[in-house]
Structures are given as structure tokens and as C-alpha cells.
Write a protein that binds this DNA or RNA. Structure first.
Lengths: 289, 289
DNA sequence: AGCTCTTATGAATCATTGA
DNA sequence: GTCAATGATTCATAAGAGC
């Protein structure tokens, strides 16, 4: 039995990073404030200033990430003056100068993207999930994110209600349960670098940063249980919530007090046994297994 | 009745461009040779040299494109030394210095991409379709690419039995018939900037550059009939073939004699009435309407 | 429970207005 | 002039209501 720690810090990540030793985290995954949006909350970083604002933070991330760890950056460039702004691609080039490897670019296809129609533009239905690494060799658990193959298995599994699945998988050795596992064995395939996820519209109070499925996918892919996950722009704490559910230790940093408070509500109370709070830090500790 | 011209040039586009007057084309769409691939055929442009190789060509494209025209560049960066190479994003930055506006980035999601799995990487299932313009205002015919709307209208119409639809639409002026037509009107929606297209596996002989549906979509979106389309890296002539079928004038440039010859076979013989060939040029002329 | 149908809304973008 | 704030536009989801 091991403890799963979930800590949340209030403050600008640039300052909070100083609290962490080097090579602490297995995965850093975050969706930083987009340029010019949330202007009231994050001081309104202008697109032209975005790279300079981000670089000192990515430099610290380089320090606290384990050499075989991964940094996933969910980001998308704004339209400025009828043009896609270049701060994202400039950031990639600058981060490489810092020592990051730009290993891969995943596409998050937003199935239910924001509506709208404009004279010379369609709806923006995708975001970048940039993968950065320190070494060419890094940890990756591909089997953890295998997906049902084709339509057949998908439809078949969708037909099973939750209770059916629980009941039948619990009957070990039963013909039906065996069939289910056969489907799973045979009909699983490795995914691609395109993720099809709908944004979550459930949270009414707060802007849904990314759907739970997004950090979930990357956490499964790049960490194993009891590894350490960091989200330096934690927002309403989705990453930490998912990490906790997956039995990963996690730390979130958020500079907005409202979000910081909200996070306490998002983390299910039944999942932590110990609650500590200092001026800058809240610890939720839960037990696993 | 107007002629639709389809011309094909043999040679390096950098030289062939000199034959064209300025502001000739309404759309330039191409899938240039990827860095380091097709090395035997295109002189093997190395990734590090790709930008320098491309820029003089994009400069000429800037000259021959109409001010309200569009340039669509289908491209994807190679993996070099376990990293995504940066030549594509560097190219974007350099082309902006030439005067291009980077208006948008469409994602081509390759639904049936080549299966495969690597230790540190999943299958690459997408490519960039970069949209460049000269002016902020450009021609765009959004209605030409509208797609059937999601579930709402579909489910609605499914409820109606065939006999119901026939009976009630025949009763002109009935309230019910009116409603049905309203549904039909609202059945179409504007697409997003993510294109879901399967790669074509038909052509075994030649590397499948892009599926017909890709140039088709952009030609419909950015040109009308009798406009001029250019593909400076025409390969086996897919763009010209599609343009001809859509009653657009088109010019293709290809430096490989094999491809040049292949194109004659790809363009259906029944569609051209006149055949002229000079040292560098082949004209297929067809009549429309 | 299993459907059908209604309704709210989300990291959007552009044109217009006002300071 | 430039910059910031507001309204209009619009569709894939999920939650909720009703049967």
C-alpha cells in the first residue's frame, strides 16, 4: 500500500518551481493561458509577448522534468489581423534552443468546437498537443492507450451497460466474460497521433480547459502508477483530478485564487485522508490499494 | 460555351514560372516533394536545406497568384533524429517575410493511414494544409463545401417513413410539407478546418500524393468555374485532373518525365479535343457546357 | 430502463461602436 | 489614428425532461 499525493500550489509557476528539486517529474502536461485570452485573470499576455513570457517557465520545466520524462503542451495560436499568429511556432524554435527536443505534434480534434461563421474562415476544430522531451529515449507505455478497433467492437462494447460489464467481468471464467476479454484482446489497436475528443460542456461555473480524456490519455501513455505528474497552469485542477484517479502523484500550480479554491471541490473528498494547508500549499493525500 | 484549358509543363517549376504573367492564378495548390523523400527523383533535398530550396519558388508563386487568390501548401515535417524537423515552421516564418499572410492551417486527418508502430511513436495520421494569402480579403466560396449537418436533421428525417414523405411533400402548401423543406434547408452546415479524408490506395505504381478529394475540396472552396488553378509540383496530375472535372482551367508543372507521361493517361482522353505539344508543354483543351 | 426531444453552452471570430 | 469592449453568428454535445 502506497500513498498517492496530490498537491496544489497557489501562485505563478515561475516562482513555485523553485520549491521543486531537479528531475522530479515524469510528466508535465499543461494547457497554458492562451495569448490575449483570460486577460483579466492572467495579466493579459499579448501575442507578441507570449514567447518571452513562456520561455523562463519552460526553462524551469526543463530542470524539474526527469531526463526520460515528457512535456505535453496543449496550445493553439489565435487569429490576429486575419492571420494565424506565429507565437506557437516561434516558441517551438526557441524551446529547442533551450535544449528541448520537439519529438511529436499530436492533434486534438475538437468534435464539438465552438460554432460560428465568418466571411473567410471556418470553425477552428483542432488544437496542438506538442510533445517535448529531453532525451531521444523516453518512457512511453503504448499498450496503456490502445483503442477498440473499427466499428464492430466499438458498437459491441457500447451496447453493454456499465452494470453488465461489471457483472460479467467479475464472473471470472464465465463464457460471456471470456467473450468480452476476447473482444478486448483481438480488437485493440494502437492509436494514431490524432485524438478525437469532445470538449466538456458540463462545468457551468468554470471554463473547461480541456476534457478529462485529454490528460488521461497522456498520463496513461507517459507514466505508470506512483509516477509524478505536474500541471503548472492547473486551472480548475483537471489534471490533478485525473492523475489521482489513475493513482499517480501530482502537483498543480494555479495563480488564480478562485481556481485554487475550486480545485478543492473538484478533488473528491473521499479520496484524501490527510489535509494540510500552508500559505502556499495544499496537500491532499490518499491511499491506494 | 467556354473552353477549359488544362496544360502540363515538364521541368523545374522555378524555371517554368517565368512563362507566366503576374496575377494569373486564382489558386495554387500543391504537395511538394517532402524533404529527403523521393530523393532519387527530386535531387534529394535535405531537411536542413529545404527552406532555402523552397523560398525562391514561393517568391515566384507570390508573383503569379492573383492578389485575392489563395495558396494551399500540403506538407508535413519528417522525423529526423527522433525529432520532428523544423523546416515547415521555419518555412512559414520565412514566407511571411516574403509577404505571404499565414491565414490558416487546415488539418488533413488521414483516416486510413498506414498501419505501424514504433517504440516511441504512433502512426502519423495527419498532414498540414497551410493556407497563405496575399491580402486579408480573398475569394472564398464557403457554400460550395457545405456538409450534411450532424444528427439533428438526420434523426428527424429518419422518423418519417418513405410513404409519409412522398404523400406529404406532394400536398403542396400543407403545413407538414413546409416543415420538411425547412429541415432540408437546415440540413447543411459549414465544415471546420479539419478534413477527414482517406488516402487513396489505388495507385500502386506511384506514391499517392494526395487523394482527389483534397484538391477537390480546396478548388471548390477557393475558385469558381473557369478560374485558373496551378500545381507547381503536379506529380501524377491529380490536381489538374480534378480541376478539369470541376471545369476550372489548370496548369501542372512536373520535373519527372515519368510523371509527365503518366499524366496523359490520368487525364481522360474523352475530355480533351485538342492536343498540342511543344518541348516543354502539353495542352489538353476541353469544352465545357 | 430505454427512447425521443429540448435546451444550454463552449480557450471562437468578425464587424461595429466608443473611448 | 489606435485600442478595447460588445453583439451577432452558429453547431456538436450532454444533461434533463417527458413518455
Amino acid at each position: 500500500m502506497k500513498e498517492i499525493k496530490t498537491a496544489f500550489y497557489l501562485g505563478d509557476c515561475l516562482e513555485v518551481f523553485a520549491n521543486f528539486e531537479a528531475d522530479k517529474f515524469d510528466l508535465i502536461i499543461t494547457s497554458p493561458p492562451y495569448a490575449d485570452s483570460r486577460s483579466k485573470t492572467y495579466g493579459g499576455i499579448k501575442p507578441d509577448e507570449y514567447v518571452d513570457w513562456f520561455l523562463p517557465r519552460s526553462k524551469e520545466m526543463l530542470r524539474v522534468l526527469k531526463p526520460n520524462g515528457t512535456f505535453i503542451l496543449n496550445i493553439k495560436e489565435k487569429v490576429v489581423a486575419s492571420e494565424r499568429h506565429t507565437y506557437v511556432i516561434e516558441l517551438i524554435l526557441e524551446m529547442r534552443k533551450q535544449g528541448w527536443l520537439w519529438t511529436e505534434e499530436f492533434i486534438w480534434h475538437k468534435k464539438n468546437c465552438y460554432p460560428g461563421k465568418w466571411p473567410n474562415r471556418f470553425r477552428d476544430a483542432w488544437e496542438r498537443c506538442l510533445q517535448f522531451n529531453i532525451n531521444k529515449k523516453f518512457k512511453m507505455y503504448q499498450e496503456a492507450v490502445m483503442i477498440p478497433m473499427g466499428n464492430w467492437a466499438e458498437k459491441r462494447l457500447k451496447k453493454l451497460s456499465e452494470t453488465d460489464k461489471i457483472r460479467d467481468t467479475s464472473r471470472v471464467g464465465s463464457g460471456f466474460g471470456k467473450n468480452v476479454s476476447n473482444w478486448l484482446d483481438r480488437k485493440m489497436a494502437y492509436p494514431t497521433n490524432v485524438l478525437h475528443l469532445a470538449t466538456e460542456t458540463g462545468n457551468r461555473k468554470h471554463s473547461a480547459v480541456f476534457p478529462k480524456a485529454l490528460p488521461e490519455w497522456f498520463i496513461k501513455l507517459f507514466t505508470k502508477e506512483h509516477d509524478w505528474v505536474l500541471d503548472p497552469f492547473a486551472g480548475s485542477g483537471t489534471t490533478c483530478q485525473v492523475a489521482q484517479n489513475l493513482a499517480r502523484n501530482s502537483i498543480g500550480i494555479e495563480m488564480l485564487p478562485e481556481n485554487y479554491e475550486l480545485t478543492k471541490k473538484n478533488i473528491k473528498p473521499t479520496q484524501y485522508l490527510l489535509f494540510e494547508e500552508t500559505q502556499h500549499e495544499t496537500h491532499y493525500v490518499t491511499r491506494n490499494n
